[in-house]
Design a protein around this nucleic acid. Structure first.
Lengths: 138, 138
DNA sequence: TTATATACCTTGACAGGCGATGTATCTTGT
DNA sequence: ACAAGATACATCGCCTGTCAAGGTATATAA
């Protein structure tokens, strides 16, 4: 169960790729997959809120780079409520559109801590796997 | 709902717990989604290799916490080759099982740099969104 | 002989994200 | 008055990456 250490790396002279980075670059949704619920729980850890507002807060916090689509947002809320990580109730707005507020439950807080730990773990592993020679991030 | 990647659970004869959760916990596949191709490209940046070996290297580098399933692995290679980020060829093994080797292309190197930049960006945004009061990660 | 390791491949199902669309109320500009 | 836009929620069907489960074939060790 030994893993070869074959260091002969043949790097063709195509040169390293240079990437210009625009400010308005948004994030591929596949990179967000699995993090949506954690992000929503993170917002609800701070205070109760409703879908539309939470989405605006996320957009503002990421300078508009991350916007959860509505279908994604409400779908995630449904799942979170189904497993008891949040509870919802209608606000008592007397004017304007009705709002469905969400509150995180104790189970939700625990789930958030768990998700966060998993994320940290995944982040470390990915960073380790894409680290290039000469780079040192511990 | 997320599930954990778990290896074949071998039930010990005495009925004792076989799987230790905690340090050796594997990563939810949704957290890996969208990073698979980048990880494969990262390996091919170092040297040409073949599927089975790459997977072993990834497992070794992550202390067994991350194992790409074969269907995932080969599916990703197919996609990478289809868009011209890698090329493949059969090795000339005279003994043992045949191997399909992969080599990253210049376009692949550029794609890797791009993916990496996107990952860094996504990572920062997610970390920012789940940061709690009093925490400071710049 | 059997089991294990190496090495590749495919099919079907699943689940989360998204585009498109719909509902309703309130505000603002002309 | 009327249009346009913001607020606010909801759902349907599609797309895509991942996985479980199955398969093929060769080599070596027990």
């Amino acid at each position: 169960m030994c893993y070869f250490i074959c260091k002969d790396q043949l790097i063709p002279p195509d040169g390293a790729a240079a990437v210009e980075w625009g400010d308005s670059m948004s994030i591929a949704s596949d990179l967000m997959r699995g993090n949506t619920e954690m992000i929503l729980l993170a917002q609800l850890m701070k205070r109760e809120s409703y879908g539309y507002e939470i989405n605006k807060v996320i957009q503002a916090a990421t300078d508009g780079r991350l916007e959860l689509k509505e279908a994604t947002l409400y779908g995630a809320f449904r799942r979170l409520e189904a497993v008891g990580h949040i509870v919802s109730y209608w606000g008592d707005e007397t004017t304007g559109a009705r709002r469905r507020y969400y509150r995180i439950t104790p189970a939700g807080r625990q789930a958030f801590a768990q998700s966060r730990a998993e994320w940290e773990q995944a982040r470390r592993l990915i960073d380790r796997l894409i680290a290039q020679e000469g780079e040192h991030h511990d």
